[in-house]
């Protein structure tokens, strides 16, 4: 049996340990905020935090999250930095179609937790793995800078 915490709630899982975490979140827990993009950890749409580190849940088997603490987009607003990022996202109108955004937001939160005032170069290094098909990158960058100002 796999034990894990999702957004602070203890959970147990007894199914196929090779099943990706993303399937568990979306299909079993009905937490559909995290998106399925490429299924190969190449696009970043499925980014969640595993023990505070951003990870691609589509390629993370359940066996590897035994004992782990998972945070998803559903709990972002409960976090001070998460709330600031979401507010900045709205202010800057960062999303266009919006499909990649939960992944973008989770990666942005991880970046700001580590570096509260990131440079453009930091943003590129931390966010390049999150692909936006609408190419809203300039607005995403502005939103991260805005959130950084807010959390100061």
């Amino acid at each position: 049996m796999i034990k894990l915490t999702i957004n602070g709630q203890p959970q147990t899982f007894e199914g196929d340990a090779e099943m990706p975490l993303l399937w568990y979140l979306r299909d079993e827990k009905d937490m559909t905020g995290t998106k399925f993009g490429c299924g190969m950890a190449l696009c970043g749409a499925c980014t969640v935090h595993i023990d505070g580190r951003p990870a691609r849940s589509c390629m993370t088997p359940m066996r590897s999250v035994d004992g782990a603490s998972i945070s998803t987009i559903e709990a972002a607003e409960e976090d001070r930095i998460g709330a600031a990022v979401q507010a900045a996202w709205i202010e800057e109108q960062a999303p266009q179609c919006g499909y990649c955004q939960s992944g973008q937001v989770m990666s942005a939160i991880a970046l700001l937790k580590e570096k509260p005032s990131p440079t453009d170069e930091d943003i590129d290094a931390a966010m390049s793995g999150n692909i936006c098909r609408c190419a809203a990158y300039p607005r995403i960058r502005q939103a991260i800078h805005r959130a950084a100002r807010e959390i100061k």
Partner: peptide, 8 residues
């Protein structure tokens, strides 16, 4: 690396 590798 930033774009294609750092993710994993």
């Amino acid at each position: 690396f930033e774009g294609d590798c750092a993710g994993c």
